[in-house]
């Protein structure tokens, strides 16, 4: 079991190792900049527990945990 983006706690960060799963979602995540080696930090979780807000490449992105769990990380 490797660490995924969905498992980070607010304030924690890591580097993207891989994005897997269904191609269309995977490609969208990649196009938004979640490519291999990108530094990404979990900023906060929405009040109802999902989705989450992450920071990467100097901007903020919101994804559901189901999508975030496709992004595996190398621990910081």
């Amino acid at each position: 079991m490797s660490l995924t983006l969905a498992q980070l706690l607010p304030g924690q960060a890591g580097y993207v190792r891989d994005v897997d799963g269904e191609k269309s979602i995977c490609h969208r995540l990649l196009e938004m900049g979640l490519t291999r080696g990108t530094a990404v930090q979990l900023v906060r979780v929405a009040p109802l527990g999902d989705p989450i807000e992450v920071e990467l490449r100097g901007y903020r992105l919101s994804v559901r945990k189901s999508e975030a769990s496709r992004v595996t990380l190398e621990a910081d």
């Binding site: 995540l29 901007y59 903020r60 919101s62 994804v63």
Partner: peptide
């Protein structure tokens, strides 16, 4: 269809 992804920028 496949559940649509929620991938959204939170602009400043």
């Amino acid at each position: 269809g496949p559940p649509p992804a929620f991938i959204m920028e939170l602009p400043p």
